[in-house]
Design a binder for these strands. Sequence first.
DNA 1: AATCTAGTTGAGACTTAGTCTCAAGAAAGA
DNA 2: TCTTTCTTGAGACTAAGTCTCAACTAGATT
Lengths: 159, 159
Amino acid sequence: MKRFVEVEQFLKARGIRLTGERQLIVRRAVSYLHFTAEELVKDVRTIDPTVARGTVYRTLGLLHRTGVVEKHDFRYGPPNYEVTFAKAHHDHLMCIQCGEIIEFQEPRVEHIQEQVVKRYGYQLLSHTHKLYGLCQKCRHVNPKRASKAPMLHVEEIVA
Amino acid sequence: MKRFVEVEQFLKARGIRLTGERQLIVRRAVSYLHFTAEELVKDVRTIDPTVARGTVYRTLGLLHRTGVVEKHDFRYGPPNYEVTFAKAHHDHLMCIQCGEIIEFQEPRVEHIQEQVVKRYGYQLLSHTHKLYGLCQKCRHVNPKRASKAPMLHVEEIVA
DNA sequence: AATCTAGTTGAGACTTAGTCTCAAGAAAGA
DNA sequence: TCTTTCTTGAGACTAAGTCTCAACTAGATT
């Protein structure tokens, strides 16, 4: 079954009104792996220019609140969204040069996290774990000009 | 030795001009554990209202590029800065109710990260690892009203 | 100490990303 | 079909941050 149909059924089952605008927005959103709010606005308005910016933001907020999309703050740049509906939990590895994003799973880290929160008497609700580096290609390319990304912290650089 | 003196020496050694504005900004910044750019602007301008907003932002950028401060995108709200100069690497655990931030160290996770990046042929440059949850106190408090934070993702909630 | 000059500053316009308001329009139940 | 409630488009508004430029100043040079 198409991914957007599942999402639409999920929304309907929660008593959320399925308007034409929302359907369009959901269908465009699932076509991306990752996207920014403004990218989605542009994309949707390319197909139907009558859809207001506000509607895209509102729908994105709705999808976020209902757990259909996840919001990622990759460094440098506006937040990034991902339709995680019916998708296994994963974390991200990003190339700071070309922007490639790789999704990885690491149950061992999840396990250690549990130990950490227990240590401080916390109840774990969620987490983010992002790795930044250079992919094989970019490592061998001499950047033509300085990237816009700020210099890395001395302490952050892993030997 | 006072923390800000060390930072000032570090900047000087790198040939960075030490103006009165920069000294004030550094001194206020090191007095916080975590702060937002706007908080720092307000704080600095309380002491010297002639310092421009832009100067605080520029100096913060300078401190960031030189690795004196680190920028954290805790979810919900503007980014958070931390003077990490001469401070051991650590990650963060945050209470989403009261905002408490705990710094923790987990060499085991750092080690697993190395394995992950090797798996994909990447060179690791930096990472962020943030845990969100409820502290002991907040877990037992019935929130008076819904928090502004978006609902958690089903997949994000750890059993 | 006076001079020089590249780097820094204040002021404020500008940008980007996102929120809010409200009248008009559309979905779903009665 | 009517009614109620929710959603929408339009655009004003806000928050956070960036940029420009003439005036100023730290620190090097004399």
